[in-house]
Design a protein around this nucleic acid. Structure first.
Length: 811
DNA sequence: AGCACGCCGACT
DNA sequence: GTCGGCGTGCTC
């Protein structure tokens, strides 16, 4: 009966270089049937108790002395062996501790919480108590039974060494609790404990006054099925105590059962049937379904223009996966997980789909996840982290809007969901579908060169023509004496649009383009005292705010650097655009969407639905309105300044600009009416703007690839970006130089190291930032120890104030 | 990470 | 002479 699980190898929940390896534990006999690879366990670790994950089993261990597992924490292991393997892969390629990768895969609810608890020893002796603090602590413990270490330290006169002393004397017991915040919703179910005739007999024998009890029994005589207690009580208008008495008399039984919270309980979804596919869609569908049914790994880039019906292809492909007894994951960018989107999936797949929405509470999210883990649902829809949905029979992963930057995680582990998805698909022999109207240059390149199958949807479903795009040269406007935010063509287009009773969307690029305060005497912009960035002026409360650290100050009267009173705000924030819109086209009803107006929960949705209901003529906003929204009434899209993203120090600036412009253009005229797009810019000749205006995707990508190749950027090389930050300017530079020196001997053939140079934003939150970059050939046989050297950097530079973050691209 | 063990300055 | 500072190293 020995299952071979004698020794469990465990990654302990301590993210540090020294602990980033498995620790071996003896598995007590009784735990062997429940512990699995992927189980969450509690283990003694040093003097403390921590949680950890079992990653494999062994027959023997090289460790000197083995401790035993304390507990297996879940009946169903949170992770599958595949996900454990995946975590090790992520840790390796994205240079993070394995435990960090493991944590990224489970809902926050399961993450460890540790508390040190103090209790009095049962044989506690009063004698020899000296200090006031000791007396106070002992009294408090007598009253409450136990205290957390933090609580104890709050007491006056109590400090760490006092507590330590009491522990050493054996008067105080200190124990660490490792746990989680899991609260599984429990529901009591009631069922009859006796046969129908016996129940009838019992009912007869009841006291004449026991009217309610009789009613309850009568209910079960008629319907002997078990029911949830709350439902029973509300149906019969009975009290809990009535039922309790019947249970005590042995007539009924109750049982507490775990229940899933249903975040969509109060919503009903219209069942929806598949739509007929166009020939193009059919072809795309086939290229997914054929390998799906064959069960072989197959990546597909679904390059489909906006309005070409990609979602319908996804839905039908998922249906095929389900028919084949397989499961599917759908990734969508965080912001486009809208109610409409949820509706569409719920309508098609009903309760076979779990939606991992950022708006869910921790408990709801955990419950959705548990449904996936328990096999209760076959489809998971969600943002980036849904890529870790614990399915065991994955057949299909769909990444919608695959070029979106939100698929890259900014914290450790700094993975890209697209690469993780690829890894999972390879493991499962599954189909990976990446859909976009504007694919990432990397994906385009892979499709071009045969790494991905390239499927295009070039026609819009209802054959609507693409809106006409006009590029307006703002330099020319200025020359002609128009100093307004709006060019003449845009102003006219807006007026026409309003006259026809149609709606317009005005898009303002937020990044690097907002209202800032400038001194006209010395030319200084008012900057954040903690970051190297200008403060943004907020009209609504007349304050200046830093968008990086949140620092806020009132509008200054004088220039902070020269004292001049000639200061005013410049630039074009959404508030400013709104004002000028009111001035030049009075009477237009405008809805503004930006950080200020969407701060409150649900505001985002509320504003959008107001616009959808025709309560405004113009929707004015930042990035957030560029994606996925689809309003029939919109016939005009205006881009206030297309080139603001162009000058960012990022090799993807042109790519981002092209994608953004193409996406916003797609918002115009999606329905019966034809649309129009007006793009204002100071660089009308730039290829990303020109080709977006001409819908010339092909030329744009060719051009961009050529440039990337010349300048050696991904997808033509792999790249590590190292960011060092420190509170001291000199120290961070020193660390950067030292790191560069240290890494040089490890550079493999075909790799080059660049920097250190100041980061694009040289200071954030009072931390100075410098950057190092390593570019390397895509295929490297001999890494020459570079990876290990990079891993070691975090601790190897010896300064605790120094932080190192490593990004990796071009896998 | 945390905590123990270990080696040098200001206090009963 | 001891209490306690924080440097180094280990946790199966």
């Amino acid at each position: 009966m020995d299952t071979g699980k004698r020794i469990a190898r465990v990654y302990v929940d301590v993210a540090a270089e020294g602990t980033d390896k498995p620790f071996d534990y003896r598995v007590p006999e009784e735990m062997r049937p429940v512990v699995e690879v992927g189980s969450r366990v509690r283990v003694p670790f040093g003097t403390r108790k921590r949680m950890g994950y079992v990653i494999e089993f062994a027959e023997s261990s090289s460790a000197q002395r083995l401790k035993a597992l304390s507990e297996v924490m879940d009946i169903i292991p949170p992770l599958t062996p595949e996900l454990v393997e995946l975590a090790r892969w992520i840790a390796e390629v994205y240079l993070c501790p394995v435990i960090t990768a493991l944590h990224a895969m489970v809902p926050a609810m399961l993450k460890g919480k540790y508390r040190r608890i103090l209790r009095l020893d049962p044989g506690f002796r009063e004698e020899g108590l000296l200090s006031e603090g000791e007396t106070r602590l002992v009294n408090q413990l007598r009253k409450q039974g136990e205290l957390s270490l933090e609580q104890a330290l709050q007491l006056p006169g109590v400090n760490r060494s006092l507590i330590k002393g009491l522990i050493l004397e054996g008067r105080l017991i200190s124990e660490e609790r490792a746990g989680d915040r899991v609260t599984r919703k429990r529901i009591t179910w009631i069922r009859p404990a006796l046969e129908r005739e016996e129940l009838a007999q019992k009912a007869e024998k009841l006291d004449a006054r026991a009217k309610r009890q009789k009613e309850v029994l009568r209910h079960f005589i008629h319907e002997p099925e078990e029911v949830p207690l709350p439902a029973l009580l509300s149906r019969l208008g009975a009290a809990r105590s009535t039922v309790k008495r019947l249970v005590e008399k042995g007539c009924l039984q109750w049982e507490e059962r775990e229940e899933y919270r249903d975040p969509f309980a109060d919503k009903t979804f219209q069942p929806a049937s598949p739509l007929p596919l166009t020939p193009e869609q059919e072809q795309a569908f086939q290229s997914i379904v054929t390998p799906l049914q064959a069960g072989r790994y197959h990546p597909v880039l679904l390059h489909g223009v906006t309005g070409s019906g990609k979602t319908e292809v996804y839905l039908q492909a998922i249906m095929e996966a389900l028919k084949a007894g397989k499961q599917a994951i759908v990734l969508v960018p965080e912001i486009s997980l809208t109610p409409q989107m949820v509706e569409r999936f719920k309508g098609r797949f009903g309760d076979r789909v779990a939606v991992l929405h950022s708006g869910l509470s921790g408990g709801e999210r955990y419950d959705e996840w548990r449904k996936i883990r328990a096999g209760g649902v076959q489809v998971a829809v969600g943002a980036r982290s849904a890529i870790f949905a614990p399915f065991t029979r994955l057949g299909l992963i769909i990444i919608d809007e695959e070029h979106e930057s939100s698929y890259k995680q900014e914290e450790q582990p700094k993975y890209h969901a697209r690469e993780v998805a690829r890894q999972r698909c390879i493991h499962h022999g599954a189909v990976l579908v990446m859909g976009s109207a504007t694919p990432a240059v990397d994906s385009y390149f892979r499709a071009r060169t045969g790494g991905y199958e390239w499927v295009t949807l070039m026609n819009r479903v209802h054959g609507r023509p693409f809106p006409r795009v006009d590029v307006v040269d703002m330099r020319q406007e200025l020359k002609e004496g128009n100093r307004s935010i709006f060019s003449l063509p845009l102003r006219e287009a807006l007026a026409d649009c309003a006259d026809r009773g149609e709606q317009a969307v005005l898009f303002l690029n937020r990044r690097g383009f907002s209202t800032f305060v400038l001194c006209r005497e010395c030319g200084e912009a008012v900057g954040c005292p903690h970051c190297d960035i200008s403060l943004t002026y907020h009209r609504s409360n007349r304050t200046l705010r830093c968008h990086y650290c949140g620092y806020t100050e009132g509008m200054p009267e004088h220039c902070p650097s020269c004292g001049s009173s000639h200061i005013r705000y410049f630039g074009t924030g959404t508030q400013r655009v709104e004002e000028e819109l009111a001035r030049s086209l009075p009477g237009l009803r405008v809805i503004r969407m930006d950080v200020d107006t969407t701060h409150q929960k649900g505001a985002h949705e509320r504003l959008l639905s107001a616009f959808g209901a025709g309560k405004a003529d113009v929707l004015l906003g930042t990035q957030m309105i560029a994606k996925g929204l689809d309003f029939p009434g919109v016939t005009l899209v205006g881009v206030i300044a297309a080139d603001t993203t162009l000058h960012l120090p990022d090799f993807r600036a042109a790519e981002r600009t092209f994608q953004l412009l193409t996406q916003v253009s797609g918002r115009a005229g999606r329905h019966e009416k034809s649309g129009r797009v007006v793009i204002q810019t100071y660089s009308p000749e730039h290829y990303s703007i020109r080709m977006a205006a001409d819908y010339d995707t092909e030329t744009f990508y060719r051009r961009e690839c050529k440039l990337r190749k010349i300048h050696r950027y991904p997808p033509f090389c792999g790249m590590f970006t190292l960011l060092f930050s420190h509170t001291d300017r000199a120290a961070v530079m020193r660390a950067g130089m030292k790191a560069a020196e240290r890494l040089k001997p490890f550079l493999p053939e075909g790799a080059e190291l660049l920097g250190p140079v100041p980061a694009p934003i040289p200071r954030i939150k009072d931390r100075f930032r410098i950057q190092l970059m390593i570019k390397h050939d895509l295929h490297i046989d001999e890494w020459n120890g570079l990876i290990e050297a990079l891993r070691h950097l975090r601790t190897g530079l010896g300064d605790p104030e120094l932080r190192v973050s490593i990004d990796r691209e071009g896998l």
